[in-house]
């Protein structure tokens, strides 16, 4: 992806960045949210990654079009959909990644519920992205086309990925970060009029242009 490259992974208090983007990963238990995050930040994979309790947090600074962007990546527990503490944290998110497991149809069906939860708790202008994880598995029950159709219906971009094989993992985070950055830049150019609080795309607007651009595989 041109213009995008990793700068560093950091857990320190350094302030060597131009801006911060808060990104949340949500989805059912076991779909691989933590694995995606660990693959992206630490470039590691463990098939039996331990359960997230409540919420977890990682940082990665990336370079987007010459700007150092500190990505704050919040990994939520799959069982926490109805919990007030973690859903309260949806509010400040500039980007939300909805993850399902392509080998588990139930997790795909539940994406609609997660989407509803996002609509209830997140900023209207948060940028969303749908991810079908575990694309390396030969026990797939959800096709790429089904994922793509759901993304289109929800009006959000779609990517299939494999944390195990490191397929499209960087693309998930860079795509979202780039969309957020573009929206911020566009809003700045437009003088902020008509933009939301964070200057991002309205998740209900059915922005299919974004979907098309971001669809991978």
């Amino acid at each position: 992806m041109s213009g995008l490259r990793t700068v560093s992974a950091s857990s320190g208090n350094g302030k060597s960045y131009d801006s911060i983007m808060k990104i949340l990963l949500i989805g059912d238990s076991g779909v691989g949210k933590s694995c995606l995050l660990v693959r992206f930040v630490d470039d590691k994979f463990n098939p039996s990654f331990i359960t997230t309790i409540g919420i977890d947090f990682k940082i990665k600074t990336v370079d987007i079009n010459g700007k150092k962007i500190k990505l704050q990546l919040w990994d939520t527990a799959g069982q926490e959909r109805f919990r007030t503490i973690t859903t309260a944290y949806y509010r400040g998110a500039m980007g939300i990644i909805l993850v399902y497991d392509v080998t588990d149809e139930r997790t795909f069906s539940n994406i609609r519920q997660w989407f509803k939860t996002v609509n209830e708790h997140a900023n209207d202008d948060a940028q969303l992205l749908l991810v079908g994880n575990k694309s390396d598995m030969d026990t797939r029950t959800v096709t790429y086309e089904q994922g793509e159709a759901l993304a289109k219906e929800l009006g959000i971009p779609f990517i299939e990925s494999s944390a195990k094989n490191d397929d499209n993992v960087n693309e998930i985070f860079f795509t979202l970060a780039k969309l957020i950055q573009e929206k911020i830049d566009n809003d700045k150019l437009a003088g902020g009029s008509g933009a939301g609080k964070e200057g991002n795309i309205n998740i209900n607007s059915g922005n299919n242009a974004s979907s098309k651009n971001a669809c991978c595989n």
């Binding site: 309790i53 409540g54 919420i55 503490i85 973690t86 309260a88 944290y89 400040g92």
Partner: peptide, 15 residues
């Protein structure tokens, strides 16, 4: 501020 200490207290206490 915008943070809540319950985020980390939740995990510290639950496990």
């Amino acid at each position: 501020g915008n943070h809540t200490n319950l985020l980390w207290l939740l995990r510290w206490t639950r496990v």
